[in-house]
Amino acid sequence: MSEIAYRVPTMAEMAANNETPEVLFWVGCAGSFDDRYKKVTVAFVKILNSAGVKFAVLGTEESCTGDPARRAGNEFTFQMLAMSNIQVLDMYNVKKIVTACPHCFNTLKNEYPALGGNYEVLHHSEYLQQLIDAGRVRLESGESFKGKKITFHDSCYLGRANDVYEAPRHILEALDADLVEMKRSRTKGLCCGAGGGQMFKEPEPGKKDVNIERIEDALQTGADTIAVACPFCMVMMTDGVKNKEKEQSVKVYDLAELIAQAKDL
């Protein structure tokens, strides 16, 4: 399968060829610029290619959804970004969006409608589960996860914010991994510490950083892989592992990366 010619078509190219994609992949700022999360973007795009999904991205026409501005209290900046994104999305007549960022997911899905932007929005965990269930993504030929202990860190914006708890777990089960839960999971899951604009400022004075509290939950499980589904959680959990000097034995991966590994993409 490794001889696939991977493509990343843009909406502009699709429109020029009078084509309509099945789904728009909303990459997000972290997926576009953050060196670590770019790998997740690449993994997801490879999966889409190998599954034969007709997708497109906005490329340079994409902007931040505005989530960090809105959570930090700056509604002006949020709405400016949101309105111009809606203009672009509507210009291309976008109906269905998938994104690997729970913050983009939440904003596009729940907050754009009030500004006139109505789309079917899926988080990549939900979308990947659908592809697996439909048999479009087959987990074979690559790394075997059988018996591997993996724990899943619930993102607040996926879990509590949007009640998506099972899709990521179904993916891990499909990988045949040994899913071990942290003492705080699903509705009780502890935040990584980066939401609500915290990613972009120093924490307030306290006795501990939130990601350290959380990484202790994860390490307690004895898992050697921490699965995440959010770029901010990725940063916080990776930093936590480093802080505990466990980067040799414990790895942090996004769900899409694990699937790519299983498929040897």
Partner: peptide
């Protein structure tokens, strides 16, 4: 249009790693 100081024109550069 990004929370970090990156040029908007670089937003799609990641794709070179795929293709």
């Amino acid at each position: 249009q990004a929370p970090w100081k990156f040029s908007p024109s670089d937003r799609f550069n990641w794709a070179s790693a795929v293709t």
